[in-house]
Computed example of a mutant assay.
Amino acid sequence: MRVPARSPAVVVHAAGDLRIEPVPVRPPGPADTVVQIVYGGICGSDLHYWTHGAAGESILREPMVLGHEVVGTVAVAAADGTGPSVGARVAVHPASPAGDGVTRYPPDRPNLSPGCTYLGSAARFPHTDGAFARHATLPSRMLRVLPDSLGLRTAAVAEPAAVAWHGVGRAGDVIGRTVLVVGAGPIGALVVAVLKRAGAAEIVAVDLHDHPLAVARTLGATRTLPATDIDAIAAVQADVAIDSSGSPRGLASAVRGTARGGRVVMVGLLPSGDQPLPMSLAITRELELVGSFRFNDEIDQVISALADGSLVVDPVLTHEYRLIDALEAFTVAADASRSSKVLLRFDD
Rank of each mutant, 00 (worst) to 15 (best):
M1S: 12
R2H: 14
A5R: 15
R6H: 09
S7Y: 06
H13S: 12
G16H: 06
D17P: 00
D17R: 13
V25M: 02
P28K: 04
G29D: 11
T33A: 09
V34E: 03
I37H: 11
G41N: 05
C43E: 09
C43K: 13
S45N: 03
D46R: 14
D46G: 07
D46E: 12
L47F: 13
Y49K: 02
W50R: 01
E62L: 00
P63N: 00
P63C: 01
P63F: 03
V65C: 01
L66I: 01
G67S: 14
A78M: 10
A79P: 11
A79V: 05
D80L: 08
G81A: 10
G81M: 12
T82E: 09
A88T: 02
P97F: 11
A98M: 10
A98T: 03
V102E: 15
Y105V: 07
Y105T: 03
P106Y: 00
R109M: 10
P110F: 06
P110V: 05
L112P: 00
P114L: 10
A122P: 04
R124S: 13
R124W: 12
G130R: 06
F132E: 03
A133C: 04
R134N: 01
T137L: 12
L138K: 01
P139C: 06
M142T: 09
L146R: 06
S149H: 00
L150S: 14
E159H: 02
P160M: 07
V168D: 12
R170H: 05
D173E: 02
V174I: 04
V179C: 00
L180D: 02
G183P: 09
G185F: 02
P186R: 07
I187G: 00
A189H: 05
L190S: 02
L190T: 01
L195R: 03
R197K: 11
A201S: 14
V206E: 01
D207G: 05
L208R: 13
H209E: 10
P212V: 06
L213G: 02
L219H: 05
G220D: 09
A221N: 07
A221G: 01
A221P: 07
T222V: 11
D229T: 11
D231H: 11
I233N: 00
Q237Y: 11
A238K: 10
A241D: 03
D243G: 09
D243W: 08
S244G: 13
G246C: 09
P248S: 09
R249N: 11
A252K: 00
S253I: 06
A254Y: 06
V255Q: 07
T258M: 10
A259N: 08
R260P: 02
G262D: 08
R263A: 08
M266P: 07
V267L: 10
G268M: 04
P271W: 13
T284Y: 10
V290I: 02
G291E: 05
R294N: 02
F295A: 10
F295V: 07
D297Y: 14
I299G: 13
D300Y: 14
Q301G: 14
I303Q: 13
A305Y: 00
S310I: 13
L311T: 04
R322P: 12
A329C: 05
F330L: 13
T331C: 07
A334E: 14
S337Y: 05
R338E: 15
S339M: 08
D348P: 15
